[in-house]
């Protein structure tokens, strides 16, 4: 029982910085989260919030230079991926932790048959022979719902549609039955009817394999439909971490509230959408206080002075906001968000 409750992936204080001519960009600046077996964690945020850098950091695929993991640890089954040797890391990639990317059009090698692209991981990690690996890759293509997989395996990516390519990516990622799957905007480039197919497929395979899934997305709809818990990222930080129900029913951080309010609703009419005024601070020059303070309707003196911590609330959710601490005076309390 205890063993089961232990997280499979534990990220603590992860920092990924990029050093360029303009200075140091703190793309990911101290984030913490955990992932359990069979669970789906959503990491959501707008472009530039650091969600994709986080996912690449876990597999240590940050282009270096200029990128570098500057601090923190990523414990996978108790071993720290940050300090692991490159050799050991390679045994994790594509084997125990797999990843699928946003662009199915460009993420597959254009000159190698898709079957071979799946089979090579099997030969490498599972020490399969050529024939065995090929048979398994055909089987994987079948599993992800590609019709006539024997024929398709021999084809090159340009002969497949976008939806089919993403299925191939999934087949490739899951070939070695990984324990963690990182899906970085897996359906953003796809049409909605295809997106529905792909999300259902990931969910289905997750229950079959029992892996933990990290779903990186900007789409709160995708989060609501696929995730058990959610980490909302803003300017390199996690600002709110809660179960999916909590996030949508009772968002605590002003940014989360603003994000949800700015979504056009498919089932109701609104005259005007709520917006978040202002813009995200530059990752090269982060403010000393709360990074959302300049755009926050509740801002108090302490907000610009000191950065709040991610603090656990009574309902188990975590929020990085002074409003939920004892230091909050409530003097400039504004109208509650509608």
């Amino acid at each position: 029982m205890n063993e089961k409750n232990k997280p499979i992936l534990e990220v603590k204080g992860l920092k990924t910085y990029f050093t360029t001519k303009r200075g140091v960009s703190k793309a990911v600046d101290g984030i913490d989260f955990t992932l359990h077996k069979g669970e789906t964690l959503g990491i959501v945020g707008e472009s530039g919030c650091g969600k994709s850098i986080t996912s690449l950091s876990i597999l240590r695929l940050i282009p270096s230079p200029p990128g570098k993991i500057a601090g923190g640890s990523i414990l996978f089954k108790g071993n720290d991926l940050v300090t692991m040797s490159e050799n050991e890391m390679r045994k994790v990639r594509g084997n125990e932790i797999s990843m699928i990317f946003q662009e199915p059009m460009t993420s597959l090698n254009p000159v190698i048959p898709v079957g071979e692209q799946i089979a090579e991981a099997l030969r490498l990690h599972q020490k399969m022979g050529r024939r065995e690996a090929w048979a398994k890759s055909v089987e994987m293509l079948k599993l992800v719902g590609i019709p006539s997989p024997e024929k398709r395996a021999k084809q090159e990516p340009f002969q497949l549609s976008g939806g089919m390519r993403q299925r191939v990516m999934i087949a490739m990622a899951l070939a070695c039955t990984p324990e963690v799957l990182i899906a970085d905007e897996p359906t953003t480039a796809l049409d909605v009817t295809i997106q529905a197919q792909i999300l259902a497929l990931i969910k289905d395979l997750q229950t079959k394999i029992g892996m933990g899934v990290i779903m990186i997305t900007h789409d709160l709809g995708v989060v609501a439909e696929t995730c058990d818990k959610v980490a909302v990222m803003y300017a390199g930080n996690i600002v709110e971490h809660a179960t999916t129900e909590q996030i949508f029913a009772n968002p605590k951080h002003p940014y989360t509230q603003g994000l949800l309010a700015s979504l056009p609703k498919i089932y109701e009419d609104q005259e005007e959408l709520r917006t978040i005024e202002g813009s995200v601070p530059s990752s090269y020059n982060m403010p000393a206080g709360c990074r959302f303070a300049s755009r926050c309707p509740y801002q108090e003196a302490i907000c610009t002075a000191q950065q709040p911590e991610l603090v656990e609330q009574s309902d188990g959710s975590k929020v990085r906001c002074w409003k939920y601490t004892e230091q909050w005076t409530g003097q400039v309390e504004q109208e509650e968000v509608v």
Partner: peptide, 25 residues
């Protein structure tokens, strides 16, 4: 290119990435 990143994410050795995935393209 993205597909080289995919190859890395697969855990392939750098040599294989260069000679099999990159060179042909």
């Amino acid at each position: 290119q993205d597909y080289i990143r995919t190859a890395r994410a697969k855990g392939l050795r750098e040599r294989l990435i260069i000679y099999k995935h990159a060179l042909r393209n």
